[in-house]
Amino acid sequence: MTDADVPSPDEPAEPTPRNPLIEALIASSYGVTDDPLSGSNPGVRVPVENLYDLLAHLRSEPSLAFNCLLSHTAVDRPADGTIELLYVLQSLSTGQRLLVTCPVNRDNASAPTVCGLWPIAEWQEREVFDLFGVTYEKHPDLRRVFLDDDWRGYPLRKDYQDDFMLTPDEPKQ
């Protein structure tokens, strides 16, 4: 799975054998592709329009049964113009772990909420909203969770600057 030779996630054919779980997901109708950056855990990418359906399928399918959302976070990729949402799912019955990434547009970042599937997602999505500015549709209580309510800006975006931050000087010649 740590195959660094894979050039981009849209490349269909690969020489190394993949995890059967990923095979099954790619074969399904959610537009899933393999995620090259997922490290030692199996990981998939999915476009944002299929995100909720894929996650609902992952949770409700008895053979998969991913009933635990371990973590939900985001990565800011200004070069691609996207913010990648990352869901780390764990199945307590089969012991399987899966990473699901979903790139959303950086301006007007928005994604469907998964609070209905995993109640813990409520606070985790609040944290992503707080630090990255991703709004979640139909979230019951979307407000900042870590920073003060009147904080302006989204600090974990790579282009965040404010007067308090101290940037190191360029190394002199």
Partner: peptide
């Protein structure tokens, strides 16, 4: 945490 931190007091 001095550099590039939006929140740590110096």
């Amino acid at each position: 945490f001095i550099y590039n931190s939006y929140t740590t007091l110096r």
